[in-house]
């Protein structure tokens, strides 16, 4: 029986690809300048010329959402990839070597889970950040720090279960080094679980960016970000809900799509052994 990914999966993938392309090519796409204010259009609802309407000072919400995607996507992708490499490595080492290495790594990682994310973030912004330009790096840095522990735990659990299999023992019996056992025998089996998990982490980071922006700590204006747009639209919720709603919907759909793709991939990659 072949497993199928289904129509909705491809729909979600296409959505994500289109969003990513739009963000990358935002400069050259025929969309409005996100900084330009259109006179007399303040708080105007969606129309043909301004698809998502205009915000409090008359800027085009649609183009700001596209530009906002740049920040969201860069932060979530880079953050996840880095966290995946570091966390994945730590998790595999911890699960494979066991005993003392495992105890220390697990203790450290668990300890890092105790730090409240928001406090850590505030501290880093306050102490490291003097210049707005660097804010995006601090965001990525914090997100990496925050995602390492959860990823490492998932990978460690998967590694533990695979490392106990006879084929790992067989590889060692053949004289394989630890590195080879880790990367050739264990990684291919563990990878599906953390690749699909990473998409869920990615979705999480987009949401975190939103909440951080709500505190005014994300990438500072004039660069548009989704969280910042939702935050700014808050004051006009009663008269022009679309200012907050549009970026919120896009964020919602993006997060949903990422989660969905992650879930589906996880199911898809499940070892076929279960079929036997």
């Amino acid at each position: 029986m072949r497993k199928r990914l289904g129509f909705v999966f491809w729909l979600a993938v296409v959505y994500l690809v289109v969003l990513a392309l739009a963000a990358v090519f935002a400069d050259v796409l025929p969309i409005k300048d996100p900084a330009e204010t259109f006179p007399g259009t303040s708080k105007q609802g969606p129309s043909l010329s301004h698809w998502f309407g205009n915000d409090g000072v008359g800027r085009d919400v649609f183009s700001r959402v596209i530009y906002g995607a740049q920040v969201s996507l860069v932060i979530s992708t880079v953050g996840t990839v880095l966290a995946l490499i570091i966390g994945g490595l730590l998790g595999m080492v911890s699960g494979y070597y066991g005993s003392r290495v495992d105890r220390w790594l697990t203790a450290t990682l668990n300890a890092s889970l105790v730090i409240p994310p928001l406090i850590l973030f505030l501290a880093l912004v306050l102490f490291l950040d003097s210049e707005a330009k660097r804010r995006i790096f601090i965001l990525v840095f914090t997100f990496v720090l925050l995602s390492i522990a959860p990823i490492a735990r998932v990978v460690r659990a998967a590694t533990l279960s695979w490392a106990g299999q006879d084929f790992v023992l067989a590889a060692r019996t053949l004289g394989a080094r630890d590195g080879r056992v880790l990367f050739r025998e264990i990684l291919p089996n563990v990878a599906p679980s953390f690749v699909s998990y990473s998409l869920i982490i990615m979705a999480g980071l987009i949401v975190v960016e939103g909440s951080v922006a709500f505190l005014g700590l994300s990438v500072p204006p004039p660069t548009p970000t989704w969280g910042d747009m939702i935050n700014k639209g808050r004051t006009n919720l009663d008269v022009a809900a679309h200012i907050s709603l549009m970026p919120a919907i896009v964020m919602f759909v993006t997060v949903l799509a990422l989660n969905f793709v992650g879930d589906k991939l996880q199911q898809y990659f499940e070892p076929r052994e279960s079929v036997l």
Partner: peptide, 23 residues
């Protein structure tokens, strides 16, 4: 010991789990 191990081999009880399912 890694150089000696090829001379000493092992066959396992569970043939399925002794072969990497991804390779």
């Amino acid at each position: 010991i890694r150089d000696v191990r090829p001379r000493l081999q092992m066959i396992y009880q569970d043939p399925i789990s002794s072969l990497n399912p991804r390779r």
